[in-house]
């Protein structure tokens, strides 16, 4: 009896420790971003006298004006990032689903070798082919164009793999066959029947594709030299310039604006996103 009591007491102590650690880690996630958003509304003098504050101030508009005066236009970066991220997301989701469907629904001679090929290239460190990629695009006159940042997304091996696993678990070929009897073509069957079936997988993968494209710094940094074409992450790199050295509030505001869409997406869809990460783990 006594032993059971002490075990219960120990469980309670450990549980308290767990909650303290979890709350600490949650604060650790929030604090840097909280400081960023708060300081985005504070004036440079305020930040210089005390850079920690829990309450927002009233300098948001003047910070914005400083950015605009220094030729830092977040609206342009936002539009550019949006075009690229949406384009890349649509292409990657559509063609990954199509390829996965081709791998699951049809019996063809090269099916297994093709799948093995996708598995083999799944983990190729693509960033290391940047020199060849840049030279190739330069020769084609495609630097400072969005095409090289969007079209490659149509070949996303990891997403094909995920979509294939999803289709294997959910697709029944009876549906396909009855569509055929109704006289639907293969492409129409895919667009009108299969894609809607894949909606949950498509939604999850679309979020990750969008976020991945939005966050990409490396390829745009190499390919885009025209200021008007800059994406949000490259604009972060601009903040390094001397003209921003003393503009603390404006720098925090600029940083906040580069990630604002991500925070909005995350707080609307966080459950789906976390579910997607978990699903990815199980689909190996």
């Amino acid at each position: 009896m006594k032993k059971q009591k002490s075990l219960k007491a120990r469980t309670r102590v450990v549980k308290t420790v767990i909650y303290i650690v979890c709350i600490f880690l949650s604060l650790l996630s929030i604090m840097p971003f909280y400081t960023m958003f708060i300081n985005a509304t504070r004036g440079t003098y305020e930040i210089q006298s005390n850079s920690i504050s829990l309450i927002p101030s009233t300098y948001l508009i003047s910070n914005w004006k400083v950015l605009i005066n220094k030729n830092f236009n977040p609206a342009i970066g936002f539009m550019n990032s949006m075009i690229i991220a949406v384009g890349a997301t649509v292409l990657s989701v559509y063609f990954s689903s199509l390829t996965a469907y081709g791998l699951v629904a049809y019996q063809w001679k090269w099916r297994q070798p093709f799948f093995t090929f996708i598995m083999a290239v799944l983990m190729i460190p693509t960033q290391l082919s940047i020199i060849g990629f840049f030279q190739f695009m330069y020769k084609l006159g495609l630097t400072n164009k969005y095409l090289p940042l969007i079209v490659p997304a149509a070949a996303s091996p990891a997403m094909v793999f995920f979509m294939r696993q999803y289709l294997l678990a959910t697709l029944s070929l009876d549906i396909v066959n009855s569509a055929r009897i109704d006289g639907a073509g293969e492409i129409r069957t895919f667009n009108t029947i299969i894609l809607p079936i894949m909606k949950p997988a498509v939604a999850t993968q679309a979020i990750f594709a969008f976020v991945g494209s939005w966050n990409n710094l490396f390829t745009p940094l190499v390919l885009l030299t025209d200021r008007k074409k800059y994406t949000m992450p490259i604009m972060v790199n601009l903040l390094r310039g001397d003209i921003y050295r003393t503009e603390y509030g404006s720098v925090y505001l600029a940083l906040s604006l580069t990630v604002l869409p991500l925070f909005i997406i995350y707080f609307i869809l966080s459950r789906h996103i976390i579910g997607g990460v978990a699903l990815g783990a199980l689909k190996e």
Binding site: F95, S96, L98, T99, Y101, G102, L103, A105, Y106, Q107, W108, W110, R111, F114, V121, I124, T126, L128, S129, I130, I131, G132, F133, Q135, F136, P148, V151, P152, A154, A155, P157, V160, E186, F190
Partner: peptide, 25 residues
Amino acid sequence: KWGYIFSIPFFVVFLVFSLYPIIYT
């Protein structure tokens, strides 16, 4: 044949934008 047709976009884009740049590098 639809298995091939549906895999061609992926395959072509991969060859042009991933494999070729690696070899070129």
